[in-house]
Amino acid sequence: MNARRLELVCPAGTPAALRAAIDAGADSVYCGFRDRTNARNYPGLNFDFAELVEGVAYAHARGRKVLVAINTFPPAGDLAPWRRAVDQAAEARVDAVILADIGVLAYATAAHPQLRRHLSVQASAANAPSIHYYRDHFDVRRVVLPRVLSIDELRALIAEAGVETEVFAFGSVGPMSEGRCFLSSYFCGVSPTSEGACAPAERVSYLERDGRVHSRLGEVTLNTFSPGEPAAYPTPCKGRYLTHGRATYLFEEPVALNALGILAELAEAGVTALKIEGRQRSRAYVTEVVGTFRRALDALQGETPAGAEPQQLRREGEGGRETLGAYRRGWR
């Protein structure tokens, strides 16, 4: 079967992960600077300018691309770090910047008109007028679509969008209010959209008590896991809350999106690129997930005989379970 070629966009939290992603078959790698200008601001993660320059050289030498996420929202009166990040990305000759805030978009458009701009999922543009606004005002060439659309909705939106589209194919899923979720800030006092970390590691702790793991965010226990039960990050949207005396997942369950089984449908719907989530994960994860998707995409192109089994990546995902999320809205 020869389907439309899908670009494989892969995460890199470190230069080693960037090289691992390229070596495993990524077409593009996205990364961020070591500060709050991107949505994965965790200790020891991300790139400084010199590392980014080296990463770009490594990718370009192999015909691949590097995209830089500068996708958080500057607080009032504090645009300087975001401007600096855009300037440094341009100076490092990256292939595109992934932006969300309209002020940052306006700055990038004015200061670096030749620098390709993608719209981050954090901007939460999920309808044609919204996408057209970013396209017409900031010459956005690609939009990363929020994880709220079914395949049919994707197909319809892509027909109207007038720009390239990138959709999530693997990784953690949120409560379907991308870029607009402040749940974590109620627990930590830190805004995930301007500080770049939902459930920042500084506020997360795990306790072992009576054979159970208790995961805590700030002073709040968000979940407990019995021995052997698959664990999850203590993000508020995936907490287990007591309602009517029963502990249950109210917003979202700890599951991982895995679109390996519907790649042909996504290609047919007109998607340009597939995004793998997980800049906070290690290079071993990057190698495993990117390699599996590369094999599946090559098989889809008819370049290799067999693709990957959809369940092959189950162990990599949060909670040890998978979902097709909104792509198959059986629950709607």
Binding site: Y42, P43, A201, E202, S205, Y206, F225, A284, E316, G320
Partner: peptide
């Protein structure tokens, strides 16, 4: 993280120190 999800890795205390 995969090990942690599967409970093959036991983590306690300050998570930022471990993540770093």
């Amino acid at each position: 993280d995969t090990l942690f999800f599967r409970r093959d890795l036991q983590v306690t205390g300050n998570t930022a120190a471990i993540v770093g």
